[in-house]
Design a protein around this nucleic acid. Sequence first.
DNA 1: GACATATTTGCACAAATATGCAATTATTTA
DNA 2: TAAATAATTGCATATTTGTGCAAATATGTC
Lengths: 100, 100
Amino acid sequence: MDPESPDQMAAVLKALGEANRMSLVYELCGANKPQNAMCLCACCDVDASVVSRHLKILAQEGIVEYERKGRERTYSLNRKELANSLRALADKIERMNHDD
Amino acid sequence: MDPESPDQMAAVLKALGEANRMSLVYELCGANKPQNAMCLCACCDVDASVVSRHLKILAQEGIVEYERKGRERTYSLNRKELANSLRALADKIERMNHDD
DNA sequence: GACATATTTGCACAAATATGCAATTATTTA
DNA sequence: TAAATAATTGCATATTTGTGCAAATATGTC
């Protein structure tokens, strides 16, 4: 993560910009313990394989991390990094250039 | 804008999550005056009709506003609202629930 | 009115995406 | 080893999406 270019920033937001993936992120927001995929399945009404793929996409963008725990994988939000990226974008957007 | 549900938040981030649209937003970031579409065309190497459609998508999500100025339309970022939405998401993501 | 400029819209199309189901892999338990 | 559980992967498919080009619309200028 830590997106610098428009392209990198867009890639992160693209991963977040899908309803089911956003639901997964919200779900992970409210959990203080890493959650496995079966548990996360409850929050979006799609097949387990679809959840698996969505989690993979979120992981590829560094939005979530996972840890192997026996036969399951527990996912957790990359809170600090993600929050910082979003705030960096917010700052950039709000800062007006007065020298144009 | 002012997204409350995961779906609404996802819709806004989906609009931002495309490279050319993000370039347009970055371009508008650095401008202190509203820009017309022809001027914004310079920042992404696509047809003017494509820029028109991207701006329409950004406008539909409340990310940009436009004003009719004669035969041109001048676009500007909805800075405050967009920044607030992003910060609200960042806050939500960073706040850990300690009672789970 | 005729022409130029700015923007949008209609159409076509290729590529990407989200999804479900079935099969597979990995791991635990009996 | 056999059965159960968790998760991923391989198709197939329907839908969405980004794009360009040409035509249409809107407005300004001569």
